[in-house]
Design a protein around this nucleic acid. Sequence first.
DNA 1: GTATGTGCAAACCTTTTGCCTGTCG
DNA 2: CGACAGGCAAAAGGTTTGCACATAC
Lengths: 138, 138
Amino acid sequence: MTGQRRVIAHVLSEADDHPDVEELYRRASALDNRISVATVYRTVRLLEERGILERRDFGGGRARYEASENGCHYHLIDIDSGRVIEFENEELVSLLSQIAKKLGFDLVSHRAELFGRAEKGATADEGKNTSSEGKKSV
Amino acid sequence: MTGQRRVIAHVLSEADDHPDVEELYRRASALDNRISVATVYRTVRLLEERGILERRDFGGGRARYEASENGCHYHLIDIDSGRVIEFENEELVSLLSQIAKKLGFDLVSHRAELFGRAEKGATADEGKNTSSEGKKSV
DNA sequence: GTATGTGCAAACCTTTTGCCTGTCG
DNA sequence: CGACAGGCAAAAGGTTTGCACATAC
C-alpha cells in the first residue's frame, strides 16, 4: 500500500457521486501531484477486481466508479439534468432473481437503470446537492 | 437511400441477436463487398438517432445493436458463454415505473440486465442457437 | 447538377502496457 | 536487497472524421 493508492482510495471513499477516471485523477492530483493517470487506471482496476469498487456505464463512453456497498442498489438518471439518484428496493431484487431462476439461471449480478424526467409538481428535493442525500429506500 | 444502406438495414432486420459493428460489417460484406466499416458506423448512428435501432452495452468495450421494437424487453447474459437471452416481464415494467414515480419522476426509459450462470440440471435450451428462439415471457 | 453517401486512412479518445526507475519492508 | 508500485510515453482498440470520389434523384 503506497502513498498514491492511499490517496486514490481516499478520494474514492469521499466521493458520493460517480466520478470517471479523469475526475478521479483531477481530485487525486489536487491532494498529491505526483500521481499519473496510469496509476488511477491501474488502481481502479485493482479495486474493481477485489470487489471494493464497481464500474458503471451511464453512457458517454467513459466508465464511472463507485464504492461497492453491501446490498445492491440502482440508479435513476434525470435525463434533463444528468443527476444520478441511487435507490434500493428489495422487491426488485427478488423479482429479478426469480426471473433468472425461471429462465434456468442463477443470478450472479445485475443492474437496472431508470431514465426519468422530474414530475412538474413533485417532491423533487432539488437544489444544492447536499452531498450526502444518500440512498433512498423505495 | 443507397445500396450500402439497404444492405446494412437488411442485415439488421434479419438479425435476431445483438451484433456489434464488427459483426455487422462482416455480415454486410458477405452480401456486398463494397462496404466499409466507416459506413456501418455511420449507418448505425443514423438509425439510432432516428430511433430505428438501439445501442446496447453488455460490457466488453464495444457497442451492440438491435432493432427497436414496440414493447420493452430485457436481457439476461450467460456469464460463462456470453449468450444473451431476451425476455419480457410486465411485473418488472410496472415495478420500475412505480419506483420512478415514488422518487418523483416520470419513467422515460429504462434498462435491466441480469448476469447469470446456468443452473446445473436446468432446462437450458442450449445447443445451436436456433436463430429465432425469440423473446421469452417470464 | 447538386446534395448526399462512401471509401480510405488518419485522427481521436479512453484504456492498457512496456520499460525502466522509485518505493516499501 | 527483492518485490512490487508508479511515471512516462507509446500502443491498442473502438469510433469518428476530412477529403476526394461516387451515387442518387
